[in-house]
Amino acid sequence: MSERRACVETTHDDASTVAAALRPDNTPSMSTSVADDVVRTTVERETAGGLQSTVDDYVVNLTVAETVARTAHEHRHNHE
């Protein structure tokens, strides 16, 4: 059976912080990279259902990572 693949690209003011917050939750079937302000995560799974599940989980984690990055930015900005 061939692998199913999805690539999710999102743009962020602090892409490095978002990617760092995401990486601990990545499974072995996922890879995340950063280029400029873009976070790119590729997911490979054997089934379409598995791919959908993993991407759904990733989107939830992405929402949390964005919140972490925004909070960190605001904290740094307020303490300068």
Results as ranks from 00 to 15, higher is better:
residue 1 M to F: 14
residue 4 R to H: 03
residue 4 R to Y: 02
residue 6 A to Q: 08
residue 8 V to S: 08
residue 8 V to N: 08
residue 9 E to D: 10
residue 10 T to H: 08
residue 12 H to T: 01
residue 15 A to D: 04
residue 18 V to D: 01
residue 20 A to R: 14
residue 23 R to V: 11
residue 23 R to K: 09
residue 24 P to Q: 05
residue 25 D to K: 11
residue 26 N to W: 02
residue 27 T to G: 10
residue 27 T to V: 04
residue 27 T to S: 12
residue 28 P to Q: 00
residue 29 S to F: 00
residue 30 M to A: 09
residue 30 M to S: 00
residue 33 S to A: 15
residue 33 S to K: 05
residue 35 A to M: 02
residue 35 A to Y: 05
residue 36 D to E: 12
residue 36 D to Q: 06
residue 40 R to F: 02
residue 40 R to S: 06
residue 41 T to Q: 01
residue 41 T to E: 00
residue 43 V to F: 02
residue 43 V to E: 04
residue 44 E to Q: 13
residue 45 R to C: 04
residue 46 E to W: 09
residue 47 T to R: 08
residue 48 A to D: 14
residue 49 G to V: 04
residue 49 G to H: 11
residue 50 G to F: 03
residue 50 G to D: 15
residue 54 T to C: 15
residue 55 V to T: 15
residue 56 D to F: 15
residue 57 D to R: 08
residue 58 Y to E: 04
residue 58 Y to K: 06
residue 59 V to H: 10
residue 59 V to F: 10
residue 60 V to H: 12
residue 62 L to V: 03
residue 62 L to G: 03
residue 62 L to Q: 12
residue 64 V to M: 07
residue 65 A to D: 04
residue 66 E to C: 10
residue 67 T to Q: 10
residue 68 V to E: 01
residue 68 V to T: 05
residue 69 A to V: 04
residue 70 R to S: 12
residue 70 R to M: 01
residue 71 T to S: 09
residue 71 T to V: 14
residue 71 T to G: 06
residue 72 A to N: 06
residue 74 E to G: 06
residue 75 H to G: 04
residue 75 H to N: 06
residue 75 H to D: 13
residue 76 R to K: 14
residue 76 R to E: 00
residue 77 H to P: 09
